[in-house]
Nucleic acid binder design. Structure first.
Lengths: 348, 348
DNA sequence: GTGAAAGCGCTAACAA
DNA sequence: TTGTTAGCGCTTTCAC
């Protein structure tokens, strides 16, 4: 009964179901049945088994069980970038839900690279994951549809909305951007630059659309200016800085993503513009620090928690054999009006 | 050759090594040898195998291979909280390194709960992970040492430093805190309150020690005030707020963790103190937003990247059978002097 | 250089 | 209710 400690040469082979069976004087199948509740087992044996399990410190080899059962209770989760608070929150919630349903998460990050994404997904599939939750790095998701052939039940979050054959979930980006832009318009802004990372990504296209729609309604359609920043904070900063140095600089910046928001603030500093006196800013994607330092940053928050919850719900449904047609879920954003957006000065 | 698309009823059973062998007219073993380079295979067969693999879209079942080989090329990673930027960065880097060495990451989060942590580790072990990287939720790590008995090669990061039988890595918390505190002292501060989450955790004890040492050197040992905040931002905020409302409030706050920093800033807002005119602040743990909004927040940054890199290196070493005695690695923190720390007004 | 056969640890099907 | 048997798909002896 002396439990071997780390460091000691581990002499004792890790016990198998056979060892338990032998010790309990029952068949391996019976051990299995006791442990999994697969079939009723007489109380006497049942107790002998449990005792043997305990005394040997037996734990079933999940690998062997998975191989046999053809299910791993493992879900692959692929995100572009775990250090982005949005994806961190997404993963966090998914991991939590998975734990509750006795699933494990195999995490992979694609670094926004479709090739890497495809490769990572492939190795996840090799491990026979039961399902997959992906926040694709691109919309085409060539990565996602190409490998092996068939994928296990898969839900796409944030990007790739509406892709045939997948349950997809995304924020209502059009509406979110619309409301964010409208907020600025109501404050009197007309020269609003939207900063996107890549206008061709559907998310950004949608956000641009929402932004344009708000502008049109305000009769300012012609004032639309969309600036393509690039995929990281630094390139966004540079793009915004260029924009701010132009003769008729915008009075407000609408940063269409987290990195764009960070970049925009940096750019303002670089150019020497004070937030919100000299210029207004609203971002898409919220983070806790935005309500900590003045000026608190106004933001359109995506419903991350709900997105994760829905993703998990849909996935479980598929895993349970649900054969409904692909779900497409749009979830509403929340507008947080804080201090970085301010009514425009009259003298402009 | 028609690759089955998702949505179509997948009629084709996923091909096994047997199928490949049959098609290539060789033994399964030969397929294995070709794919793994285990033994030389005649060029003729070799090509037949490769062709068969391609035409069937065969991918080896990693589960079966793992069961047989008794190695999964999977590493468990357990962190208290993935949404904390420090741990997010840690996981990010580990995941990156793992990918490079063709390992997968099984992620689990303990929510700072030792019981949950133990449970999660146990299920990771059931999956026969080859190794484990844990940022323990507590120091005792009863969780870590208790389960099954033996653990696979395990490295402890951030907490649990020096625990027998593990490779452990942590920031040099004493020195980091010492330097942070010294910075404040050099600015003339004498009434510096340190906010910790739990004084009993070794990390915080160390940070307190560093803080005290700096104070002693400055002959201000008696002015030490350590405030225990609690485990989340909100309770830290409340604790700091209480401190700030006391008659002789501190002139500077030294927040000993990320959550404490967030809480401290909130508290200052609540009390109406302006940073850095009315009070100075330095935190432990850095984040990108701290250098974005004024005042930029001074911080003692832990070397996350290096911690992850070292953790991975040590783990690989163990996995390779390295039998060196447990490593204990302390890595240096970096002091980022920014704008939230300012020389104290003379009239105090 | 190659194939046949055994077996990793488990569960499901089949008997008893 | 229980035990026996046959694999899950792979790798690894062991023969040839």
């Amino acid at each position: 009964m002396s439990k071997p400690k780390r460091g000691e040469p581990r002499k004792t082979r890790v016990p198998t179901i056979q060892d338990v069976a032998r010790l309990a004087k029952v068949a391996p199948a019976t051990v299995s049945n006791v442990l999994n509740g697969t079939r009723p087992v007489a109380e006497i044996r049942r107790e002998r088994v449990l005792a043997a399990v305990k005394s040997l410190g037996y734990r079933p080899n999940a690998l062997a069980a998975s191989l046999r059962r053809k299910e791993t209770r493992t879900i692959g989760v692929v995100v572009p970038e775990i250090t982005n608070p949005f994806f961190a929150a997404l993963v966090h919630r998914i991991e939590e839900l998975a734990g509750e349903s006795d699933y494990q998460i195999l995490l992979a990050s694609s670094n926004e690279d479709p090739k890497l994404e495809a490769a990572r997904i492939r190795t996840l599939l090799d491990r026979r994951i039961d399902g997959l939750i992906v926040a694709p790095s691109r919309d085409e998701v060539e990565a996602v549809s190409h490998p092996i052939g068939a994928l296990p039940p898969t839900v796409l979050v944030d990007r790739g909305f509406g892709l045939a054959g997948f349950d997809t979930i995304a924020a209502d980006n059009i509406d979110g951007a619309y409301r964010g832009c409208k907020h600025l318009l109501e404050l009197g802004h007309r020269d609003i630059a939207m900063i996107v990372m890549d206008a061709k990504l559907a998310n950004f296209a949608d956000r641009i659309a929402g932004y344009r729609r708000a502008l049109e309604e305000a009769g300012a359609a012609k004032r639309a200016r969309v600036v393509t920043g690039g995929l990281d904070v630094e390139s966004c900063r540079a793009a915004v800085e260029r924009e701010l140095r132009r003769p008729n600089r915008p009075t407000a910046i609408f940063a269409a993503s987290y990195a764009a928001t960070l970049g925009a603030i940096r750019a303002m500093r670089a150019v020497g513009l004070e937030l919100p006196q000299d210029i207004s800013l609203i971002g898409i994607d919220d983070s806790d620090w935005m309500a900590v330092l003045h000026p608190y940053i106004s933001a359109v928050a995506q419903p991350v928690e709900e997105m994760a919850t829905e993703a998990w719900r849909l996935l479980l449904q598929r895993l349970a054999g649900g054969n409904a047609k692909s779900a497409r879920i749009r979830l509403h954003c929340t507008l947080h009006v804080r201090e970085s957006t301010r009514a425009i000065e009259r003298d402009r």
